[in-house]
Amino acid sequence: MAIPDTLASPAPAPVLPRGRLLPWRGTLRRILLPLVTAALVLGLWEALVRLRGISPALLPSPSAVAERLVATGPFLLGQAVPTTLETVAGFLIALVLGTGLAVLVSASRLAREALYPNVVFFQLIPKIALAPLFIVWLGIGTGSRLTFAVFIAFFPVVIATLAGLDGVDRDLLRLCRSVGAGAWRTYLHVRFPAAIPHVFAGAKIAITFAMIGVIVGEFITAQAGLGYMILFAASQADMALIFASIALLCGIGLGLYALTALAERVALRWYGG
């Protein structure tokens, strides 16, 4: 191929596709690139702590956190059990109550007009601020943390599910009426299955919200759990333990989200949309 005279004519468009600098396939790149970025930040953190001699009482290095995580691993895992169980239980209860309320609101005009504006109101306010009320009313046990987790995880489920139930094609609902199908049969065979992708969209928000609810509850009252560990370690100025607890919490949060996303994938494969 002749090299064009760059003075006489503009250079031809490059033949190589863009992104040739990273010669991986798209997915590999999508996974590796953020991991490399995160590793760089951790490396920078480590270097900063070591080179500047930052006190571990202020900011422990990532390696010190990792050491601490390994050393206190079994103990922290024990603390993670109540946190995880309460999160999962809160999530499941919120899922059942949330879809239930969405069905009620979509089925009854009275329920929609009376309840839905209030649901939206609660969805919009900073619900975390209400946490102390739950402690006052329900005490310092699992019950109050669970209730609070349900309370904050519930609203995204209602709103997403209702969007799905309301979004069913009007002509499809007309078809159901025209073949003589009642409201219940239409829910069971058309509206509810049609809403399932929306239910999962709400569930993915709810699982993270449920964990936030439990942690906030533990901050206020608990004698066990990872939220309690974080506060306890802070009172001892044990920064490595704080970070180790947070790291474990992040791992559990990601794992629960991944499980929800996996369930969504299975459901969407069934849904086939």
Binding site: D169, D171, L172, R174, L175, R177, S178, V179, G180, V190, P193, A194, W270, Y271, G272, G273
Partner: peptide, 18 residues
């Protein structure tokens, strides 16, 4: 009220994807 002895077709197929 709804007539059960008619067959309906709309602009969109409105099939159930699942």
């Amino acid at each position: 009220g709804p007539q059960t002895r008619v067959g309906l077709m709309f602009q969109d197929a409105t099939l159930l994807p699942w």
